[in-house]
Design a protein around this nucleic acid. Structure first.
Lengths: 201, 201
DNA sequence: GGGTTATTTTGACAGTGTCAAGATTGAAAT
DNA sequence: ATTTCAATCTTGACACTGTCAAAATAACCC
């Protein structure tokens, strides 16, 4: 059953990743300790160190996984057919992704990883690629419909920031209640759409 | 010199708050330990426990301080004179506040405090009051200029989310470079203003 | 089979938050 | 002024964390 029949445990690397992910979902980053994780996997405290350089490396691996999901979602959702609905659906999907995997989302964008140049090269690569895909597909969707002298990259940054900020407020439970998700997200979509079709200034 | 001449140390409570704030600025939340703090204040490891119930209480006190600054800024910046410039200036000031005190901002809105109902009543009060002030003043500024069937509370939530998201991306160093602050913030301001003056949907 | 290397373990260390119990000190009460 | 009392501070201890060093084990290559 193990893909590449490994040594003692069989497939500790993947087992650790899986177990870490459920532990993350259950208890959040602050509840994810290497020792607890090792115990769940049935190995000694320091066994994980032969598969991940340190805790940060494991967290980065988790975040990388999540980013690849997000990237896939971006490419699936933002196909070049009808900009209006595409963008609306994307925002809804993005909000769903974040609210259904709050701990993963926190890890992906939180300071735990992105403080002081700790993110892995692999993580940086896929994180930036995800955003680039978003920017590219958004530019394609809005080609010709964007007012003159409007940099599409800036539009991508600003619109991502909007959805991202909403996710953070939702996840952290500040200012926005869980029950308001629908109305607030609709309002945010309206905000973005308005800016995309007719910005002032 | 001590305001209310206290016992042994003189004024440990305030000294701790001050020292904790500089320690926060220097090393971030993850570098703020009670033991380091106690040593800086020249007292024993457990001395702080007679002034703050636990570490969370101290962090909440720090966040409360920062929120009172933010609240004051909101009230100062969003006075009822010319909605356009007022809002633009507010956004600029908000971004300045967040980027100049990144660790404080992180603490104010981060999961460290707002996870699992840990925030102090005092903190919750001032945090919600700040937002209420923003919503009220925004509603006043936009009175009559908002399209029909647009809840001003939703507008407040969506616009705050935009600026908040931008701050997070900036602070955590994801997707938005420090050098792009000017252009991106202008773009975000444009996004908000467009939505406020003529939303679709 | 022997040797090399990958994997896992045990032991240890420094650091953390926090509790319990004792020591010290300031102020109030008599 | 002396006693009383509560606030303040200290020392000791515990469980938990991440991580290193060195020893033990097991798989692989030749």
């Amino acid at each position: 059953m193990a893909q590449t029949g490994r040594y003692h445990h069989g497939d500790l690397h993947d087992t650790l990743l899986q177990e870490a992910n459920t532990l993350l979902s259950e208890q959040g980053v602050e509840g994810l300790s290497l020792r607890k994780l090792a115990e769940r996997a049935g190995v000694s405290r320091t066994a994980p160190y032969h598969h991940f350089r340190d805790k940060n490396a494991l967290l980065c691996a988790l975040a990388t996984q999540a980013f690849s999901q997000l990237d896939e979602m971006i490419n699936r959702q933002l196909q070049a057919t009808g900009s209006q609905e595409s963008i609306q659906n994307f925002v809804r999907e993005y909000l769903r992704f974040a609210t259904e995997n709050p701990e993963q989302y926190e890890l992906m964008f939180g300071r735990t990883i992105w403080k002081g140049g700790e993110p892995t090269d692999e993580l940086k690569t896929i994180a930036y690629r995800s955003f680039r895909h978003y920017a590219e597909r958004l530019a394609t969707l809005l080609a010709g419909r964007l007012p003159a002298r409007t940099d599409s990259l800036r539009v991508a940054q600003a619109s991502w920031a909007t959805v991202h900020g909403l996710c953070r407020l939702l996840i952290d439970g500040i200012y926005v209640n869980r029950e308001d998700i629908e109305t607030v997200s609709e309002q945010s979509i309206a905000l973005i759409m308005a800016a995309l079709s007719q910005p002032s200034s």
